[in-house]
């Protein structure tokens, strides 16, 4: 680019009236090896800006975690619901069939005892029926001793 155009741009630049594009032209011109001798004193300025633009931060930004947890509150509710259903299902299925060997034996013994007791009570009732004949004595004695 001819140096007089650069001079014009420079004048505008120092008045603060150049556009981003024009400033880009200036930066490009001054980053070249062939800068007109009388303009060389401006080069460090534009080189400095270019360099400053390349500087990067080395650090990692640390941000707190709790907000992420808050965003997924429904996940925890869903998880606890699934667990509750699982536990409830386990308990209910076990109540019906999941008896241990000992419990099954106890149940059988209970049934046998019940049958035995039933038999005893049946015999007992039979005996009690027989006792009704004793009442006959009472009625007959009442007739005689009236």
């Amino acid at each position: 680019m001819e140096s007089n155009k650069i001079e014009m741009l420079l004048d505008a630049y120092f008045e603060g009236t150049t556009t981003i594009q024009e400033e880009q032209q200036l930066r490009e011109y001054f980053s070249n090896e062939t800068v007109a001798p009388h303009l060389e004193s401006y080069a460090p300025m534009f080189q400095a800006f270019e360099q400053a633009h390349k500087e990067c931060s080395q650090q990692e930004i640390e941000l707190p975690k709790p907000l992420i947890a808050q965003r997924r509150w429904w996940l925890s509710i869903a998880a606890s619901a699934v667990i509750a259903i699982g536990v409830a299902g386990y308990v209910f299925t076990n109540a019906n069939q999941g008896l241990t060997q000992e419990e099954q034996e106890a149940l059988a013994a209970f049934e046998k005892t019940k049958a035995a007791l039933q038999q005893i009570s049946m015999n007992f009732n039979e005996g009690a029926e027989e006792l009704t004949y004793i009442d006959e004595f009472n009625t007959t004695t009442k007739k005689i001793l009236k």
Binding site: Y13, F14, E15, G16, T17, S41, Y42, P44, M45
Partner: peptide, 17 residues
């Protein structure tokens, strides 16, 4: 902004000179 910028650029130029 333009005024501030112009002043800043000129200051740098003068100091550099």
């Amino acid at each position: 902004i333009r005024v501030n910028l112009s002043r800043a650029r000129k200051t740098v130029r003068e100091a550099l000179k």
